[in-house]
Write a protein that binds this DNA or RNA. Structure first.
Lengths: 202, 202, 202, 202
DNA sequence: CGGTAAGCGAGACGGTACGTCGCGTCTTAAG
DNA sequence: CTTAAGACGCGACGTACCGTCTCGCTTACCG
């Protein structure tokens, strides 16, 4: 009688087809980007009928959103003993994710559709930024405990500023080395205001 | 010495048609956004043949880029006597430009094409950010003269961080009030690190 | 034994759409002629997508060729008891087909494309002239049996000359009455050579 | 003071340009045919502006018509002493004109536009057929004088039938040899009816 | 165990927009 | 006032995707 376990009649949807279309979506997103990617191409690469995609997703945006959502990397909370090193580790981690082809296209897509399709940014916020924001709070708590920064500092605020800086650098400093350098300098400045932390990063 | 004034033969391109298509482009960009905007629609509204558009621009992106480039508002360098108020004025000014329908669409479009079409970000950098970056340097120079901030502070670095923060807020805080509030708080934090400037903004 | 009935996968092509586009093609061909007829107009009148046309035909010429090929009128072999009357009946029949708007446009199109697109004349020959050529042979056989004409007369030769005369008259005597009169006189001359048939036709 | 010689003011029209455009027209007509030939291409090959063409001709059809009209070969009236040989000579002459690439395209174009543009056939009739029709009358008069044919035979009628036969053969017997053979046989039949002329041609 | 209902790959469907090309006209400066 | 050059508004071209709709065929359940 439990309606959760009620089975619908007929052939169940194929998990294999679903997996294939998500895989193909991510590949093509990394290769050609969101706009240049056609549903036909995804279906063809996945060896799947177009209707099978549309049965699950109402639009390309939904499909891609779901595909991205499922690629959740592990969030590692660095704990090196100093805020400086922890931040360094966070930058490295962010660089790895954000500077990959898929990462770039993902961010580009999310930003571009932010105005026309706001629930898209919502997903990114909830699934990607939020967890990292909380992880970052842990890092700052530890720094507070070590008296590296003041107890009244708002971790969310610092994280948001940090994210904005990284995003901006992604657009205007697309080269990995200059991105890292640019982010490092800006965060150094930012954390000077937040702390007694005024030694140079790196 | 005459090669500057050398005229190409044949009928010159119509400045009037050009103006009409740029006008129509901006109108439609604000009304329906970049993706939903067709070249046919632009041509029809401008009373212009499609070929006349393609003679000037190779793609919709180029057309829109140029249209936007030509709507450059005056850059006002605030000079209120205190850095705090100057920054406040800059935020207000940025809000006005960035939060309008056209402004949002503009930023969305430029950012979205940044990865697929990097010279596009280049234009935005050169024509839009660069001048404001230099204007901002003037504001900081005055603050240095008033000893509100240290003489060794890099104005470009502060501007970049500021821009990143504004961009991030545009995506995740699209509401005008929360955008302004969010930006204000982040800049307050940022400038604490840069100065003896630790009074609350506003 | 099953390869004849092998089904291709996917949705089969719609016979209804096909019929509609052929119908629209013939209508427009009669109304505005081959050159002035656009694929868009055909598609619109048929209530069919352009791609649905191009899936079946590589060009406007192919489409029109097929449309015409399918309008096969009944071939009636007259048998009045005298060659003179039979020929009269054939002229009337040819007049009806050839002098209609569709008939004129058809002939014009076939002739015009004869050199640039020879397989087009081929279709006309095979599907239209050939059967009538054979029907005409029957008429002549009967006349031979009645000793109206010599037994050694080549029916194909007479038919070809007749057709040429009709074609020429179609171009330079477009008025139905003068076309008929012109054809009658020329055939009268032609058949004098072929027979004891020297009474005036009509 | 003769007003025929009155000079209009300004630069006179360039005969050279006119010649060049006619030349280019004929070349392209022979090479690619009427439909595939663009005014732009003619202008480019002639080194002439498009407006210079349109100043003289209202349409591509008019231009081509005029170009063709000016290539009128001399009409030679054969006089070999026998109708049989004269007709043979006429067939040879017609073959040379009609079977060349330019000749084919010309006929195709004229016929094709005959229905959509009847004054075009009119030009062809007046400028091309009429003179030959009259020349042919001379040939027949001589044959009548030699008592090869009856005095009551209508030369126009014979010429029209002959032309129709040649036209038909042009479409369905495009090969030069079979064209000539086909025409020869049909004319042989035709002239049997018109004469005591019943020896085989050739 | 056989019926039934939904899912499947394939691909055709009516549309919309694309970017190109040719039309016949218009606008330059040069002659 | 004509010329060569070439831009103009227009509209058809043939292509590519969109999201929907059949096809004939599994595939799993339920009675």
């Amino acid at each position: 009688m439990n309606d959760i376990h009620k089975k619908s009649p007929g052939r169940p949807r194929s998990a294999q087809s679903h997996q294939a279309m998500l895989q193909a979506t991510l590949e093509l997103l990394g290769e050609v980007g969101f706009d240049a990617m056609s549903i036909d191409a995804i279906a063809a690469r996945a060896g799947v009928g177009k209707a099978t995609i549309y049965r699950r997703y109402a639009s390309k945006a939904e499909l891609v959103a779901d595909a991205i959502e499922r690629v959740r990397e592990e969030i590692v909370i660095p704990d090196t003993g100093s805020l400086k090193s922890d931040i360094d580790a966070l930058i490295q981690s962010a660089a790895q994710i954000t500077l990959s082809p898929l990462g770039r296209q993902t961010v580009a897509m999310i930003i571009s559709s932010a105005s026309s399709n706001p629930e898209f940014a919502e997903i990114y916020w909830t699934k990607y930024l939020q967890p990292r924001r909380q992880a970052f709070a842990v890092v700052l708590e530890r720094a507070k405990a070590r008296h590296e920064i003041g107890a009244d500092l708002d971790p969310g605020l610092v994280f948001d500023a940090m994210s904005g800086i990284m995003l901006y650098a992604l657009i205007f400093q697309p080269n990995p080395e200059s991105w890292t350098e640019s982010v490092r300098r800006a965060l150094n400045l930012l954390l000077k205001g937040a702390s007694s932390f005024d030694a140079e990063l790196h």
